[in-house]
């Protein structure tokens, strides 16, 4: 295992060193980040990004803002002069994510951030009181296949609900990431799905029932790097991955039932400890 490094840097300093433009975010002088993560692949951000970090990316898509929220990033820097669209702005504003835009490319941005010197601000970790839910709460949602405009919105709502109940933030992060992966699967591969969230003080269960192609071989789909792309799509270079291994990694129990050409029922369980 590598020794984990922490970078505590004021966002204001990052903004200055990158000569960045503030797209969203108030009160920046009092904010800092505890890590830097540079990537254009959002699956990677979800799997490896650490909460409290700043994301450096050249990808300009709403999925960037949603992934950053799911992985609890504090800020996003869009590289090479990319200006986010209104969807990203609105989403980031609502979730208190600071968005900056810079002309620098990824290496230049890393170099500049690495060169930021000065006093490291003292962080006061404020432990939020954890008040567990006493009663079971239940919520249902709908996801439409191919509706990329709303992709990620169900997991966003689920995360907000769990936050308002007061679950442990690490647990919420795992749930948010798993739900997001499952939601993206529906958007990319299924016609539609019903999602049910059940949360109690002992367990949180998210079930996603979709109408779609189904999974022919679940065992195979659980293997990393598996793709459901057809031969024809593959010949043209189109492949789409499935997020099942990442869901498994982040959950305590995963149950998949699937019927080809009908659909898939995924039940994801998390134990509240």
């Amino acid at each position: 295992m590598q020794e984990e490094e922490t970078h505590i840097i004021e966002i204001e300093k990052i903004k200055d060193s990158l000569q960045a433009q503030i797209i969203t975010g108030n009160n920046i002088p009092n904010k800092f980040i505890t890590g830097v993560y540079a990537s254009d692949l959002m699956s990677d951000v979800l799997a490896y990004g650490k909460s409290g970090s700043i994301l450096l990316t050249g990808l300009n898509s709403q999925q960037v803002a949603i992934s950053a929220y799911m992985a609890e990033f504090k800020a996003i820097v869009l590289l090479r002069g990319k200006i986010p669209n209104d969807d990203i702005k609105k989403f980031a504003e609502g979730k208190n994510i600071i968005v900056l835009s810079t002309q620098a490319d990824m290496y230049e941005a890393c170099v500049k951030i690495a060169n930021i010197k000065g006093e490291v601000p003292v962080i006061k970790e404020v432990e939020k009181p954890v008040s567990k839910a006493k009663n079971i709460t239940e919520h249902s949602f709908k996801i439409d296949g191919q509706d990329f405009a709303s992709a990620g919105m169900v997991s966003t709502q689920i995360k907000a609900i769990l936050k308002s109940i007061g679950y442990d933030s690490k647990l919420i992060r795992r749930i948010a990431i798993s739900t997001y992966e499952a939601e993206m699967n529906v958007v990319m591969h299924a016609k539609k799905a019903d999602v049910v969230l059940k949360a109690s003080d002992e367990m949180i269960k998210v079930s996603i029932k979709d109408e779609g192609k189904g999974i022919k071989n679940i065992e195979l789909a659980m293997k990393e790097g598996y793709t459901t792309a057809t031969e024809e799509q593959r010949a043209l270079g189109f492949g789409a991955g499935m997020g099942l291994p990442n869901i498994k990694k982040n959950s305590d129990k995963l149950n998949i039932e699937s019927e080809v050409n009908k659909g898939t029922l995924i039940k994801i369980y998390f134990f509240v400890r």
């Binding site: 692949l41 490896y48 997001y180 992966e181 790097g225 789409a240 991955g241 997020g243 099942l244 291994p245």
Partner: peptide, 17 residues
Amino acid sequence: YGNIIKDVDMLSSKPPE
């Protein structure tokens, strides 16, 4: 079986390997 150079899977949540 060649692939043209483009950004495959940028928007999907393909699992890490």
